[in-house]
Design a protein around this nucleic acid. Structure first.
Lengths: 203, 203
DNA sequence: AGGTAATGTCAACGCGCGTTGGCTAACGGA
DNA sequence: TCCGTTAGCCAACGCGCGTTGACATTACCT
């Protein structure tokens, strides 16, 4: 019996987007998306709940279902991970290791893309489907640029670089293991870069 | 890790196995433990269910609660990860990187300890408590041996070695990313060892 | 053999989850 | 103005989970 006066932010409701069930209100949609990204990043897919995401977004849980079809649909909508790609060929060959490390760390430190990488990694370890999705992102982010430099065995080199870069991300950002988690960025870059450089160079 | 709670003044059984807090039948206990290790390793803590573990072990779900106090208790019982430690000081200094990589890979390839590391890692990414536990295991397994060689900055070196070794394990065994997952062991050792060696050597 | 405690079975409880459908209120075009 | 569409709220459903306690069964120790 209570009049809900939220009459604000409904101005932008005019757009209708392609395909199947489009967004209803851009503001609400974005609020849900933001809450979901944080929740999935912080807790992983299983422990994050639709109800708590909805509460954070300030809407009812059923709204989440109307906007995105299911919990899986919400995750898919938030797990796009369209991170900027590094043009490795434009970097001097002896600096490519450092460039890769720095680029990856910057992706993880940036709040938005860091959350997307976090939720992807946190969920990939228990979901084969998401693991495939993560591999696709890493292929675009790491193997692609390496292959674009014309290196031989780009797939194996990429896999080795991935293992080191994902390892750093896992220890530093997901597990938050000391002392790695508190090491200054430049220290990390200086320590790791030579290894990555070696994976790029050795035949 | 919980104190023993006796509802009816029950005492430790007669035919008990040494040490632990109150097994009933050694055979059933072991069956549950084996099933739990497999399930937690394959699916992680959240997705593994007491009911399915009990079914695999051929007992009722309530038996699991009688033997171990709760799901958390069962996990704790199976997540001991008492892996053999490498005596790094006995290895020639220029071969210590290779020795570390090979030792870790052998732990992961061995069925029993591989499962324990797997369930630890799969669960650590979404549980701070288990993350701490994993860190303790890795400290014993990696940082400890490195410190035992008398190296300076053993903690930072250990963290860097950990990042590389955990990265390989993550990509190869948990995410099962190709081509790393199918690479022969010797190929992996030969590729990774120099990086680890460098983390041990560089000042 | 008999009594007692260790083992195991069964059915249920309570909870929180994802999900559904029906309802109210506001907008917008005619 | 009225009416259809749209955005949002509320109550509930069904399910599977961890967990519990009462009951049946086995095995051991005098």
């Amino acid at each position: 019996m209570e009049a809900t006066q939220d009459t604000q932010g409904r101005v932008e409701a005019a757009q209708s987007v392609p395909g199947h069930g489009g967004p209803r209100s851009a503001g609400t949609r974005r609020a849900i998306l933001d809450a979901a990204r944080s929740a999935f990043a912080a807790q992983g897919y299983d422990r994050a709940t639709i109800r708590s995401i909805a509460a954070t977004a300030g809407v009812d849980a059923s709204m989440v279902m109307r906007y995105f079809e299911s919990k899986a649909g919400l995750f898919a909508a938030v797990a796009t991970a369209d991170v900027p790609v590094l043009d490795l060929a434009a970097v001097p060959p002896d600096r490519r290791g450092e460039a890769l490390v720095r680029h990856l760390i910057e992706r993880w430190e940036a709040p938005a893309s860091g959350d997307e990488l976090m939720l992807l990694l946190r969920t990939a370890v228990t979901s084969g489907e998401v693991a495939t999705q993560l591999q696709a992102v890493l292929a675009k982010l790491i193997v692609g640029p390496i292959a674009a430099t014309g290196a031989a065995d780009a797939d194996v080199r990429g896999a080795l670089v991935q293992s080191q870069l994902l390892g750093v991300a896992l220890c530093r950002y997901v597990l938050r293991q000391e002392p790695l988690a508190s090491l200054p960025i430049e220290h990390v870059v200086a320590s790791i870069a030579p290894s990555v450089q070696r994976y790029l160079d050795t035949p």
